[in-house]
Design a protein around this nucleic acid. Structure first.
Length: 477
RNA sequence: CGGGGCAUAGCGCAGCUUGGUAGCGCGCACGGUUCGGGUCCGUGAGGUCUGCGGUUCAAAUCCGCAUGCCCCGACCA
């Protein structure tokens, strides 16, 4: 057992804080609430970024970059938007040694500046749809911060699109939600629940917000991506108008959608165990690590040479590293790489060199059961299959965990019990006030109204009103 | 921003009650030993005790103020 890491069941938050730092994902910075993303953590983010970016481009989007600084007055153009964001704005009041005439805000999100530009760029229905994404940093002065989950500054992508019709914009909103779901399932191996946010949880200025909600290993929910249908709210505020086929002026219909570095936290908390990280092979910065083992100097040269030959053969096929560090015992290295979540470890010692074999250990199956002897000749053919197998196994494990922690409840008391260990699913037709009351009573919120509905009708768990939809309740990060 | 806690070596902590030579574990450096699941031994480097002010012959220790961090609430990708 790992005594260098707090067990999850003892204190999940502590486990999280420790593993993020010990696995070299991130470190605290001198400025309150912000963090340094270290190379290992950043590489993981790059993997997330590349997989998302590929999907955005496959669905017709292009990347651009809009500025960090936004005139304060822009935020004020959309009433709900400014009300939602003003408490968490960082404002620049001075520049060049003088006080600015108009304060600039550091973007908390870019709807406003992009809306302003779209108004200039869009004149005709022929200019639509406009499908732009940007990779950027944003700043929100959060009251309480946690590494990756909620930092003052974070990295994300924000897609902003404009369309000629309501239906097109709604379709886009849902298409991107599907893209996020596809990413979460196939790459992050997180079985998310996609659905619509309740009125009280939706984005400031949106008509409707959609979300993918993941379940972490402590049963709590983490919103891992959102997609917003903004209607014509921002188009009106920023005067994004175009002439349609009939030469009539119309306001454009816009959407926005984002996934942030919080996704790193989701991967950590959805799969990690008491030994440390468990990274899905598709996202792991290092997929295979080779640990050479020797006793005497003569063995050392022989083993290192054999290990190096294997590394050279696998390079290009998988993301592989060799652990050449001196002065650490093999056992120490095993634990170290397990903590870092590397999916596959190849152990190679004098015995293996003699037999032309290696010991292959998989991270997702702890102890001896996870180890298997493999002939060196089979590495190229077997490793990619093994990595895919691990990817699937990690997903299935997370899926089984999630499904066994969602309870269909028929009373409010049952709901309160269910959200202590996971999610509760219930008929829902309550008001915003009901939601607030529930939150104050037991800290649970409507995580989403799932896309996937049972159909039929029922009785609202809280208000007793007739209900046509079920909602997922849970405690969240 | 309300409530609570903490601040001493890179990290985790003891010392503070009862003021008097600043310590332990891990890590780090060097040497040896070990190496198929966090080896063991030795030597060594490393601290204006968060800052400012006060009390005192004397302050890590007592008092005041400030700052930062952590936890619980309200806010949130």
């Amino acid at each position: 057992m790992a005594d260098f890491l707090t067990p999850q069941h003892e204190d999940f938050s502590k486990w999280y804080n420790e593993i993020v730092q010990k696995a070299d994902l991130a470190d605290y910075s001198p400025v309150r609430g912000s963090m340094v993303i270290k190379p290992y953590g950043y590489t993981l983010w790059e993997r997330i970024r590349d997989e998302l970016d590929r999907r955005f481009k496959d669905t017709g989007h292009v990347n651009a970059y809009f500025p960090l600084l936004i005139p304060m007055s822009f935020l004020e153009k959309e009433t709900e938007h400014v009300e939602g964001f003003s408490p968490e704005l960082a404002v620049v009041t001075h520049g060049g040694g003088a006080e600015l005439e108009e304060p600039l805000v550091i973007r908390p999100t870019s709807e406003t500046i992009i809306g302003h530009m779209y108004a200039k760029w869009i004149q005709s229905y022929r200019d639509l749809p406009l499908l732009i994404n940007q990779w950027a940093n944003v700043v929100r002065w959060e009251m309480r911060t946690r590494l990756f989950l909620r930092t003052t500054e974070f990295l994300w992508q924000e897609g902003h699109t404009a369309h000629a019709t309501r239906q097109e914009a709604v379709d886009e909103t849902l298409r991107m939600l599907d893209v996020y779901t596809d990413f979460a399932v196939k790459e992050a191996a997180i079985p998310v629940i996609q659905g619509r946010k309740s009125e009280s949880e939706k984005f400031a200025g949106a008509i409707a917000s959609y979300t993918i909600e993941g379940m972490m290993r402590d049963g709590k929910a983490l919103q891992s991506g959102t997609s917003h249908f903004l209607g014509q709210n921002f188009a009106r505020a920023f005067d994004i108008q175009f002439l349609d086929e009939n030469n009539e002026k119309q306001h454009a219909w816009t959407t926005s959608w984002g996934v942030s570095t919080r996704m790193v936290g989701a991967v950590v908390m959805a799969h990690g165990d008491d030994q440390g990280l468990v990274l899905p092979p598709h996202l792991a910065p290092i997929q295979v690590v080779i640990v050479p083992i020797w006793r005497k100097d003569a063995e050392r040269a022989e083993v290192l040479a054999a290990a190096e030959r294997i590394r050279a053969r696998l390079k290009g096929l998988v993301r592989v590293e060799m652990d050449r560090r001196e002065g650490y015992s093999p056992g120490w290295k095993f634990n170290d790489w397990e903590m870092r979540g590397v999916p596959v470890r190849i152990e190679i010692g004098p015995r293996d060199v003699a037999n032309q074999t290696v010991m292959v250990a998989r991270r997702d199956v702890p102890g001896r059961e996870g180890k298997a002897l493999l002939s060196m000749a089979e590495l190229e053919s077997q490793l990619p299959l093994l990595l895919e197998g691990i990817q699937t196994a990690i997903y299935n494990k997370a899926l089984a965990f999630r499904d066994s922690h969602i309870i269909d409840v028929n009373s409010y008391d049952e709901l309160k019990e269910a959200i202590e260990t996971g999610f509760a699913r219930a008929w829902w037709a309550g008001s915003t006030a009901d939601e607030t009351a529930i939150k104050e009573d037991c800290k649970a919120t409507v995580r989403c109204i799932p896309t996937d509905q049972p159909g039929g009708a029922g009785v609202c768990i809280y208000s007793g009103n007739p209900a046509t939809e079920v909602a997922i309740f849970g405690k969240s990060y």
